[in-house]
């Protein structure tokens, strides 16, 4: 049986931007309370003493895969980095013909020589071709799904965040692959997107919440939406950020800290 859709499937950007008219007012009051709750809970967990080495929480700390992730393989890491670079080029309006080569050039310009770039340099022809084909496949999924990205939405890529808590005992680190919208508006308009090359799972939900929490702490303004897109499956998970999202993110962070502290 052949069936026809009433409308073309929504692109990632369509979902992220949503209906302009239904956006809530910017919440710039929640951050102080969240920070206080987090500080109190960390104090109960770690006590008053300053640690020699701070506990660092990253988005990857929240995945907690029970099995060894396929992403821990260096080639998968490289693929993730290259797709992220390709996303940056796409957002900057660069026409990408050979995604693997151009993303590699951008990566080397950004990171310089490191263990991973040296690892890529010593790949043989077969492995290089396999990596290029893999990156190309993920790139095609990303390019087809992302949809048009207007410059007026203020796209920013690879935005870093760094939050010191409990007098420096705890550090929250985060990198958001793509952020659109502004924090200087009266309505909530900031949308966060994480692009991953692995399939989405329960850990992805925690990561989405973590992005929202760190962004709230960083700018003191609650983002409108947090999302995650998998270039492996073409799936997009997106959820509006509300008090419950942030409270759950806080719980997730404390769970990670409990694990790190023991």
């Amino acid at each position: 049986m052949t069936s026809f859709l009433d409308a073309p499937p929504a692109s990632v950007m369509d979902v992220l931007r949503g209906e302009r008219a239904t956006r809530p007012s910017a919440n710039n009051t929640a951050a102080a309370g969240l920070r206080a709750m987090l500080e109190d809970a960390i104090y109960e967990l770690l006590g008053p003493d300053l640690r020699d080495v701070p506990l660092t929480v990253r988005a990857s700390s929240l995945r907690r895969d029970s099995i060894v992730s396929t992403n821990s393989a260096p080639l998968a890491q490289v693929r993730g980095i290259l797709i992220n670079q390709a996303l940056r080029l796409l957002c900057a309006g660069v026409t990408v013909d050979d995604v693997c080569r151009e993303a590699s050039l951008a990566w080397c310009a950004e990171a310089g020589a490191n263990d991973l770039t040296r690892y890529v340099d010593q790949l043989d022809d077969d492995e290089t071709a396999r990596l290029a084909a893999d990156v190309e496949a993920h790139w095609v999924t990303l390019k087809r799904s992302l949809g048009p990205l207007s410059n007026r939405w203020l796209p920013r890529t690879s935005l870093r965040a760094y939050q010191r808590l409990a007098g420096g005992n705890v550090i929250l680190r985060d990198v958001i692959d793509l952020m659109v919208g502004t924090t200087s508006s009266d309505v909530a308009s900031v949308v966060l997107l994480d692009v991953t090359t692995s399939p989405l799972d329960e850990g992805a939900e925690r990561v989405m919440r973590y992005h929202a929490l760190v962004q709230t702490l960083r700018t003191s303004i609650v983002p409108l939406r947090t999302s995650m897109f998998s270039t492996a499956t073409g799936e997009l998970w997106s959820s509006d950020v509300n008090d419950e999202t942030l409270a759950r993110a806080l719980g997730d962070v404390l769970d990670v800290l409990r694990g790190l502290a023991t």
Binding site: Q85, L89, V94, E102, E110, S158
Partner: peptide, 19 residues
């Protein structure tokens, strides 16, 4: 710079100017 590197420069400058 190659076009890819220029794209990255543009992305970084956009982040800066927006912030």
């Amino acid at each position: 710079c190659s076009s890819a590197e220029l794209g990255l420069v543009s992305a970084e400058a956009t982040n800066w100017t927006t912030q």
